[in-house]
């Protein structure tokens, strides 16, 4: 009988124990825990779709490695284990800070969670910086997807004599790739100053964090490039000491000699790089998406939104970020460590 007597909005009476902070409970949920559980299952299922999304590339990888093991061994020599290793550690560290940020959010410590998230953001950007160094180095050497692949033994790209690239003695590709981060850095710094000047402290702090994140990219790129230069110098020295006669003049000659030198390598070598660029490129897109999500989290930390019964967003973005790390954990040995 009571069924009929209770009418509209009967659900609300079950919210009693949480009504003090109901503003984060959407109207269609009955409790904070239901909301959290839904979000949690949702993000796990989303990760499932991510795994399957990447699976296509792993299938292509497995297939072509199965057919051309020699190509994969040959091609992976072009990938720098040390840079890859550093990037792995950078991502692992960002995972640590992310997991820590979840803990902080669970304990309601927004301030500390924000700092950890900022570190995570910086690591993500640094990862991309190092990646940019790797990419630009390969592009200099014409190590590209199969249809553009044009690497020639012994070819050393001359550093540009003019422009920014020449002045910094780095690849023109790295300069090109760094344009967007530079623009963002400038925008965010200007934004931070503007916000500070107009007295919007919170937004100023947020903009500052974004600027710090973007500078992480340059830290990564700088470190990567320094290593790269050192490594090149080392190689050159070794070559010289080994006296194989591969001096610069010879290299330049073979560069102009053209197609002969490429024919030693099977034409499928470019397929490895097709797969390499697809895998790492897609992964990089996920890193960028992660940076956006982390920035949003940081803003919410600044606004002190999280507390022991409402920390879902940190947890969800954290899970996503760990997945990005997981994928890299597999990409690293699959692409860089082939013998």
């Amino acid at each position: 009988m009571s069924t009929v007597e209770t009418t509209a909005d009967s659900h609300d009476e079950h919210d009693d124990d949480h009504h003090d902070h109901g503003e984060f409970i959407a109207h269609h949920f009955d409790s904070a825990e239901q909301q959290f559980d839904s979000g949690k299952l949702g993000i796990w299922v989303f990760l499932v779709t991510e795994v399957l999304f990447f699976s296509g590339l792993f299938v292509a990888y497995t297939l072509y490695r199965y057919h051309h093991p020699e190509v994969f061994v040959d091609a992976s020599q072009f990938l720098d284990k040390v840079l890859g290793g550093i990037n792995t550690v950078v991502l692992l560290f960002s995972s640590l800070t992310m997991a820590w940020a979840v803990r902080a959010a669970q304990l309601g410590n927004n301030n500390f969670a924000g700092k950890l998230i900022l570190i995570t953001m910086v690591c993500a950007a640094a990862f991309l910086g190092i990646k940019a160094v790797e990419y630009s180095h390969k592009w200099d050497l014409y190590i590209l997807p199969v249809s553009y692949y044009n690497y020639m033994e012994g070819y050393h790209p001359e550093a540009e004599t003019g422009g920014i690239a020449g002045a910094l003695n780095i690849s023109k590709w790295l300069v090109t790739l760094s344009m967007l981060p530079l623009l963002c850095l400038a925008l965010f710094s200007a934004g931070a100053l503007f916000m500070a000047a107009t007295g919007k402290r919170l937004m100023a702090q947020f903009m500052l964090a974004l600027a710090i994140m973007m500078s992480g990219y340059f830290v990564g790129a700088f470190a990567g490039q320094t290593y790269q230069n050192w490594h090149e110098a080392n190689l050159a020295a070794e070559e010289h000491a080994g006296d194989h006669g591969h001096d610069d003049g010879h290299a330049a000659e073979s560069a102009t000699a053209g197609p002969d030198s490429t024919s030693e390598r099977p034409p499928q070598i470019g397929v490895f790089f097709s797969i390499y660029y697809c895998m790492t490129g897609l992964h990089a897109v996920h890193v960028i998406a992660g940076m956006a999500a982390l920035s949003w989290l940081y803003l919410r930390c600044l606004k002190a939104h999280f507390r022991p019964d409402y920390f879902g967003p940190v947890d969800y973005v954290g899970l996503y970020w760990h997945l990005v790390d997981l994928i890299w954990i597999y990409l690293f040995p699959l692409l860089y460590l082939i013998n």
Partner: peptide, 22 residues
């Protein structure tokens, strides 16, 4: 299943734009 369609179509676009040889 649908994510696999996503990656398939992305690879197809990549194949068409720059011939990745997959």
């Amino acid at each position: 299943a649908t994510p696999v369609l996503g990656i398939t179509l992305l690879l197809l676009i990549a194949e068409r734009v720059m011939h990745i040889g997959i």
